[in-house]
Amino acid sequence: MSAIAPGKVSLVIGNTLAEMEKVVDLVDHFGAAHGIDRPIVNDLNLCLDELLNNTISYGYDDEARHEIGVELSVDGAEWVVEIRDDGRPFDPRRLDMPAPGGPIKDRKIGGLGIRFVKTLMDDVDYVRSGRYNVLTLRKKLPGEASGGNR
């Protein structure tokens, strides 16, 4: 078994839910190419689904086409994902994350997506850079590639 080889890929998608499929494919291929465990790949795809859906559905003041950049990189010890969009300034870390509870008839789903992101990722960082939101997710990787597609 060898350590996970470093690498970087990036992709730009439009601000439609349908284009999020391209990100799923990229993450799947990147994860497989680097021998990253399937559950980690799935966690990352889940978090990207939550964050991109949020940006695409609520992040823009107009109906114009916008571009969202997604960059994946791995340095052996961790997987880093950067998401860059030109939506309204929005730091998802500051989103309310009410403790879920109560019976089914009263239950709200708000905050669940960001709860997944904060829990499943090891670190979530945000900066506003010019007219861009730049969100960086970090997920620690096991020391050695297990090479398995579980």
Partner: peptide, 20 residues
Amino acid sequence: IIYISSAGFRVLLVAGRHAE
């Protein structure tokens, strides 16, 4: 299933209420 996002949980919640 590979995973279920909050959008999927919303569907389960709505369906659970609807079933009741």
